[in-house]
Structure formats: structure tokens, C-alpha cells
Write a protein that binds this DNA or RNA. Structure first.
Lengths: 377, 377
DNA sequence: AACGTTCATGTGAACGTTCAAACCACACTC
DNA sequence: GAGTGTGGTTTGAACGTTCACATGAACGTT
């Protein structure tokens, strides 16, 4: 069996015609055996299957694509591993997409691009050449030209990420509910006794940042927790997080916990905490976002909100294949919720406070607590 | 221009025939304009190019593949991001492969696999279906069935990684010279005054581990440095590195520097150093391998050996395309050298020693140094 | 003027598959 | 017994390219 024939130079791989001849039926019957087995009489099917196995036949993808106009390939841009501080989320997505695609009989074509315009150029090339059936977009942002371009060019695609700043976007998308995530983090920290919970966010106008901030705002309000002087925003990054956290912690009434828009910010916050001779998870708790590989490697380990990327990938592929298959019945706009992974960077609040009510504690600095101060140094 | 036509439902993309008609020439002339422009008279070429642009024509990949038997796609297995503690090296490779492939007119098809056998199954599928022209293998190890299988099935491929344990392997490979890297690290540390330089390695029999160990052995011997009691080996991992380093550092005459087979090991070593109340880069220096993202994020930053992955990817693709194009004139077995990225985890040796000779300093524990001890806590 | 050479372009076939329609045998209906 | 399905199989064509070869014009040589 199989097609070894090494040494001859030419490895003639079997075609449908050769299988047909061997099985004593027509080409079309072989095709049916592969694509629509129910059409064949059981005995015929068995005979054909035997011939297929004996010759090791698989349909030539190019020929099939040419005829059916389907390539069984979906494309996805490969982004730099820690692009925009996403902490490996997109890499995880890629792996998950691969798995899901393959189990649906599709392959994943990856490509890189310098920027969005370059990405569109690649799309144009791939689509014109019929090299892919559909595309997965990631890393959406405000004024994103890509979905419109794809719509205008009648391409099949799904998007990981909301159409930030555009209410009535006409494409299918799936995203992680960042607000729900940060809200959960706030709730968890409140459960540990924290009342002054700060937030390190991104500059206004960045979709992801605004979303995650909204969860903190919503939940602090719901729980009646203070927010004044507890919010700081800047570009993403470790240095940035360190600076912001440094400011907040230096205030008269510093936060005892910080929810951060990213793991990078959170790492910076942990450094700021160390800068003051404190320790994350004791004097000040920290929660990051994305559960990047570093989070578990840090010491103390960084509690972080993990995006359910595998679930996202499943939904993306499922939706995309529906669209490719002939149009989705109803538009997909789905939000999946992240999960808080608790590590050592979060702990009980040790700051004694008079009552549960967050009001009227002016002048009572948190540093008056015996647990705080220079206890660790 | 272009092919918008939205709303009609059918977006009839132009074929070579339509372009031919518009330009008033035959199909073959269009084909020549695309594939062998030198054959055309300048005026004809210009006219054809105009028609191509006006219609936005690109050759249908499936049709072209069917005719030419070439898909212009190369395949590569997607490995878990930090597979086997490779610290993101394979992700970097993937990105680089993408870039290089694209600039050569090829696309990259990625797939995942549970294990080597599963990977071979994917190969079989891809090859039988003519879905790829060639493959890039990564993560080679002892008793690796994949190259043999591919050879036996007449596939075109290149390998990133040496054929460990097999002298006369018949395939093209490119690898990073781990030994040269660790040798450089030892040399650098010796230049900083270190004489007792330890090595944290992997269990014997793992190709990468043995290779990197060899560099340490070679260089210490060349420089006349001691090795006794300075080598420890175990499975890769942070916990592992911490334990090994802990042992070495607890000895009567501990090392003042540690070269590690991986960044994970190095991170563990840094923890062991902290465990003793010391600080990496002061009492004990540490060098990792792979320059994973964590290395630059750690505090202190981890000095590490960076693999020149982009150069590797270039060579891999170049070699593979030669093989695909019709056989390489001479076999490629190339080693490229890593580069030491210096960060804060390496510093001058502060241990006073009687002379340059590493002998006879028994009883003189490194903690007798003013810089050491409980200075940091 | 007849001939070979070169260059530019055209013609028919082929790559391997699946689609649409045709065919055939058989069963069921009236 | 003619008409109507129906499941199983075959037939010819088509998908959009490029290959191998044919054609024809232009040019220089003998």
C-alpha cells in the first residue's frame, strides 16, 4: 500500500481516475464515496474504500478548489507575539484557531503585515487569487478600515474584537467582555475587604481600555466604593504602570488594591509596590489582565483575568464557516466572559477601617495601620 | 477599477480570458505578462498591464496550482507557545518564516498536532492532497521519526535543529550553535572576574542540553577554570532551576556565576539567589538561554543568549525553495551563533580571591565578602 | 529569391476534480 | 401495461491556468 516508489524520481500520486479503474467504477463514484458516501450502495462503497486505501488516494486540493471554488483555507494575520501588550493572547488565539479549523477540515494560512494598510493589501492578494475562503480579523481599534474594506469586497470574515466606536457595524464579531472581567476583579477584591480599589487604565479613546475601565466604574458604584483619586491612565507598559501606581500609592489615602488594564501595567504596579518596600498581595493587591505567561512566572504570582480564547476560537470558526457556507441566518455579536485566575498578588485587606461605609473617613490615612509601613524591610 | 459590484450577490472575479479579451490578445500572452514579462514586446506588455490593473486581475491560485503542480505554500507545525521551555523561540521563528516566505511569493500554512505521530499524519494528509510544496520541521530530538518518514515519502523539507544522535542524516538542516553561545557566556563572565562558573543543564541525552553543556565544558577548560561541583542537571523548569541552583549555592565553595541551559532554569536560579538573600548580578551572576520575553521583563533583567531566528528563517526558506525548485546542489548543514544580551543579572565578580589560580581557597566562603550577606534585605 | 533564425503571439490540450444531467434498473401506482 | 418515481451509477463538460507546440512576421544570410 501507499506510494513509496522512491528512487524512480517521479512519485506519481494516485488520481481519482486510477482509483476508479482499480475499483471498476467511474470517477464520479469515487468522488461520491469521498464527498457523499450515502449515495453509494454499501458494497460499492466498501469496494471503493478498499481501492482508496490500497492506493493511498486523497483528492488533489488544487483540482478540487478549482472546481468547487472553495479552498478550505482560512487566513489570519500573525501579529508580533506581545503585540500592543496583549500578553500572548493572540498567540493563544492562533493555536486555538488552528485546532478548531483543522477539526473542521480547514487549514490556517498565516501572514504577517507591517500595518493595517499592508494587511489590506495582503487581503486583496489572497482574495483575488482565491487563496482563502475566509479571514479572521484580530486587534480591532477605532477607525478601523479593514472590516469596511472586506465588506466592500464581498469577503467572508469574522472579527475578534468589537467594532469600537461604531454602533451599527454590519459584520460578525466576538469579543471578550472586559468590563465584566474588571467588575469581577473589583468584586473579588471587595470580598477580601478592600474598599479603596484603584484602576490603572489606558488613555481615553482606546476601546479595550475604556471597556475595562467601565467595569471598574460600574462595580465600584454598585458596591458604593470610592473612585476619587483612584484612577490613573497612561500608555500601556511596565514603566507606565510603575509610574501611575507610584503616584496613586504616594497619595494621602492610597488604594489598597489595583486593578490593571493589562499584565504589563500590573507588572509595573508590582514594581511600584516594591519601590515602597511593600509586597504585592499584602500591603497592596494587584490584578492584571490577559494572564500572560509572565503572570504565573512572576514572584509573587500575578492574579490576572484570563480570556477564554479557546471558546472564542471555536465561535469564530463556527461563525466563519457558516458565513462561508452561504450566509449566516442572524448576525453574531457575542461577548464571552474572562475568568479571574487568583495568585499571590491578591490578598486580604489589612487596613482597619471604622465601618463598612466608605464615607467620612477623611484624615484617616491608610498608613496608620500596623500592617503597613516598613514592615517588610 | 476593481471589482466592487456589491449587491449583485455574485462577485465575478476576472479570469485570464476576460483580461485577454479586453487587451485584445490571447490568454497565453496574459500568462506571459504575469510569469515571463520579458517575452512580450514593451507595448504589448504595457497594454496587458493596463487591462490587468483595470480589471484587478490576479491568477486564480487553484487553477495555477493544478496546472503547475506547485502550491506556493509551505507548511509548518505550530507548537505551544512555550513548548519545552523554548521561551517563545518557535513563535519568533514562525513570524520570521511568514515574512521570508511572503517576500518569496510563498504563503505559510500552519497546523497543530498532538505529538510527532499526529504531525506525521498531518504531513501525509497535506502531501497527498498536494496542499503544500514543502515543510519546515522544528523541535528535533533523538529518535525522531519525522525526517525519515518525509524522506521515504519524497517530500521537500528543511529542518530547524540538528539530527541529534545521527551522524549521517540525509536532510538539510540549520541550527543554532548552542555550545558557542554558552562558551561566549562563560568567556564574558570570566572577563568580569568570575572563576567559579556553574552550569545548570538538562538530563543527559537531550540534544540541546548536551550541546549547550559542551560549550561550558569547552570554555572552562580552555580558560583553566574549575568545573568540579559546578554542574547540575535536571528537567527543564523554574522549580527545577531553583532547586539545582540552591544546591550549588549551598556548597562550601559555591559558584559566583551560573550559565543556564534555558531562561526557565535561569529564572529558577534567580529565585534561589533571592532565597539566600542575595541579588542576581551582584553576589551571583546568571545567564539564561533563548532571551524569552520574560528575560527583559524580570527585575533584575536576565542576561540571555538570543538566537538569531530571523537569520535562521531566511536560510531555512532559501534552502527549502531551492529544494522545491529542483534539488539542492550541495547539502546544507549550517550552524548560526547566538548573541549574548547583557542585562542586570550579570555583573562583576566581587569575591576576593588570593590569586588567579582557582585552587586552594577552601574555607573562604563567598559570604565573607563585604558585598554579600544580608546587605539587600 | 529562397532559406534559416529569432522573436512575439496564438492554439489546443491537459492538470484532477466535481457539477449537472442522463441513464438504467427496479418498484410502485392507477 | 403504461406512467411515475427513485436510488445508484455513468457521461460529458467545466473550473482557470499553463505547457508544448504551431504560426507568422521580421530580419539577415547565402
Amino acid at each position: 500500500m501507499a506510494i513509496v516508489e522512491r528512487g524512480t524520481g517521479t512519485t506519481a500520486r494516485p488520481t481519482i481516475g486510477m482509483v476508479a479503474e482499480r475499483a471498476g467504477v467511474s470517477r464520479q463514484t469515487i468522488s461520491n464515496a469521498v464527498n457523499a458516501p450515502h449515495r453509494l450502495r454499501p458494497e460499492t462503497l466498501a469496494a471503493v474504500r478498499l481501492a482508496i486505501d490500497e492506493l493511498g488516494y486523497r483528492p488533489n486540493q488544487a483540482a478540487r478548489s478549482l472546481r468547487t471554488q472553495a479552498t478550505n483555507v482560512i487566513g489570519c494575520r500573525l501579529l508580533p507575539s506581545n503585540y500592543g501588550g496583549t500578553g500572548g493572547v493572540l498567540d493563544r488565539l492562533l493555536h486555538a484557531l488552528c485546532d478548531t479549523a483543522r477539526s473542521n477540515g480547514y487549514n490556517l494560512l498565516t501572514f504577517s503585515a507591517k500595518d493595517d494598510d499592508d494587511e489590506i493589501e495582503v487581503y486583496e492578494d489572497l482574495l483575488r487569487r482565491h487563496a482563502v475562503d475566509g479571514l479572521v480579523l484580530t486587534n480591532t481599534h477605532h477607525v478601523d478600515a479593514r472590516p469596511d474594506w472586506l465588506n466592500a469586497h464581498d469577503a467572508r470574515f469574522v472579527v475578534f474584537g468589537r467594532p469600537w466606536g461604531r454602533r451599527g457595524a454590519q459584520h460578525n464579531w466576538i469579543d471578550v467582555d472586559g468590563a465584566k472581567g474588571t467588575a469581577e476583579a473589583v468584586g473579588y477584591l471587595a470580598g477580601l475587604g478592600h474598599t479603596r480599589i484603584g484602576f490603572l487604565g489606558l488613555p481615553q479613546g482606546i476601546g479595550v481600555g475604556d471597556d475595562r475601565l467601565a467595569g471598574w466604574e460600574r462595580q465600584t458604584e454598585r458596591l458604593g466604593l470610592p473612585t476619587k483619586g483612584l484612577l490613573a491612565r497612561a500608555e500601556d507598559g511596565i514603566a507606565s504602570g510603575r509610574a501611575l501606581a507610584g503616584q496613586l500609592l504616594a497619595a494621602a489615602r492610597p488604594p489598597t488594591a489595583l486593578v490593571c488594564v493589562s499584565d504589563a501595567m500590573a507588572l509595573g504596579a508590582m514594581r511600584a509596590i516594591e519601590d515602597r518596600g511593600w509586597r504585592s498581595g499584602r500591603e497592596v493587591s494587584v490584578v492584571g489582565f490577559d494572564d500572560s505567561p509572565v503572570a504565573s512566572v512572576m514572584r509573587p504570582g500575578l492574579s490576572s483575568l484570563r480570556q477564554p480564547i479557546e471558546a472564542v476560537a471555536n465561535q469564530l470558526v463556527e461563525t466563519l464557516l457558516t458565513v462561508i457556507g452561504g450566509g449566516s441566518p442572524r448576525p453574531v455579536r457575542a461577548l464571552v466572559v474572562p475568568r479571574l485566575i487568583v495568585r499571590e498578588s491578591t490578598g486580604e485587606c489589612h487596613v482597619r477601617r471604622p465601618g463598612a461605609a466608605p464615607a467620612a473617613q477623611r484624615g484617616q490615612s491608610s498608613t496608620s495601620n500596623p500592617e503597613t509601613g516598613r514592615s517588610t524591610k
